[in-house]
Amino acid sequence: MSDVNNSQSMATTSAPIVLEARNVTKTYGHVTALAGVDFELRAGEILAVVGDNGAGKSTLIKALTGALHPTSGEILLDGRPVNFKGPLDARHAGIETVYQDLAMAPALDIASNLFLGRELRAPGILGQVFRRLDKKRMREEARRAMSELKFRLPSIDNPVEALSGGQRQGVAVARAALFARKLVIMDEPTAALGVRETGQVLELIRSIRERGLAVVLISHNMPNVFDIADRIHIMRLGRRAAVVTPKTHSMNDVVAIMTGAATA
């Protein structure tokens, strides 16, 4: 099954590294969440991050997006060391995160949610003096973003709460894709979805890669991971146990590495 997908994965092995972590640790008192983890994400690839509960997946992601400060170690974006003070810093640097609870205002429409916190103002006096929003342009851009991602929605004017779970996830992913300049991080994007909707979201993730962005996908769902990832970063006990590809390793191999029953 692996050679059917991943048409682009050949290019990624030599692509430049976008985001990198070197020997990052994070301790809370006596508890070690990250025990010197390395991480590298290459341009234009989908990198899955897998691991058992407590292996350090989410701590690693939080360290990468500035949601927490590593105890030690280095994080580099495009080869330059960065020191994010918070998630906003990461966003300004071009890293978008799709949170598990999606971070949406349910009663606001799709376009409003896409531009939430980054609203466009009307040109000229109306915008500068009267601070008027450019609703028309936001709606058009929202429509364009959704169609570029080939994601069909009943209407861009619907409130988000009227959408199905998959459609909501689609909007959240589209928002990340619209604003990300370097990479998108997704935390369990298919966890709450049915089979058909999961397929749609995976399609979206592929479209993001086609736009040249790198994607970090945190997931428990092995079939999804093998379906879509170019490479798989396996966490175990706060470290990177291995990085494998769906071509060279099977699901059983990956689970074995996750649990420590085997090494890569």
Partner: peptide, 24 residues
């Protein structure tokens, strides 16, 4: 209805956590 300020009033009423995450 026509400014960012108002939009953010609605956003905060809808979900303060989401508002915070998008940087409001």
């Amino acid at each position: 209805n026509e400014t960012k300020w108002g939009r953010h009033v609605y956003a905060i009423g809808n979900s303060p956590e989401a508002a915070r995450l998008v940087g409001i």
